[in-house]
Amino acid sequence: MTGHLFDAFFLIFTGSAIVASLALFTRQPLLVAYIAVGVALGPYGLKIVPDINIVSEISHIGIVFLLFLLGLDMQPSALHRVFKEISSTAIISSLLFASLGYTTGLAFTFTHTEALVLGMTMMFSSTIIGIKLLPTTVLHHKQTGELMVGLLLFQDFLAIICLLILARGAPGEFNVNELGLAFIALPALGIAAFSFVRYVLLALIARFDRFHEYIFLIAIGWCLGLAELAQMIHLSAEIGAFIAGISLATSPISQFIALNLKPLRDFFLILFFFALGAQLNIALLPELALPIIAVSVFVLTTKPITFYALLCRKSGRKGLAWDIGFRLGQISEFSLLLAIVASSNDLIGERVKIIIQSAAIVTFIVSSYIVIFCFPNPIAISEKLRRD
Rank of each mutant, 00 (worst) to 15 (best):
M1A: 15
M1C: 15
T2F: 15
F6K: 01
F13L: 04
S16F: 12
L22W: 12
L24K: 15
Q28R: 05
P29T: 08
P29K: 00
I35Y: 07
A40M: 10
L46V: 05
I48E: 10
D51N: 11
I52F: 12
I54R: 11
I61W: 06
G62F: 08
L70M: 05
M74R: 00
R81H: 09
F83L: 06
K84T: 15
K84N: 10
L95M: 09
A98P: 03
Y102Q: 06
F110W: 06
F110V: 04
T113Y: 10
A115V: 03
L134G: 01
T137K: 12
T137Y: 14
T137E: 15
E146V: 09
L147Y: 15
L147E: 07
G150S: 02
L152V: 09
D156P: 13
L158D: 02
L164M: 06
R168E: 09
G169K: 00
F174Y: 03
G180D: 09
A185V: 04
R198T: 02
I205Q: 06
F208Q: 02
F208M: 02
F208Y: 15
F211T: 06
H212G: 10
G221K: 03
W222A: 06
L224I: 14
A227E: 08
Q231Y: 09
E238S: 09
E238A: 13
I239M: 08
A241C: 02
F242I: 09
T250I: 09
A258K: 12
K262I: 05
P263R: 00
P263V: 03
D266T: 02
L269H: 02
I270G: 07
I282K: 05
E287I: 14
P291A: 08
I292H: 05
A294S: 10
S296D: 07
F298P: 06
P304F: 14
A309H: 04
L310E: 05
C312T: 07
S315Q: 14
K318I: 11
A321L: 01
D323E: 10
I324M: 05
G325V: 13
Q330A: 04
I331K: 07
A339S: 12
I348M: 00
Q357H: 13
A360M: 11
I361W: 07
T363E: 04
S367Y: 14
V371M: 05
F373Y: 15
F373Q: 15
P378L: 06
I381W: 13
D388M: 13
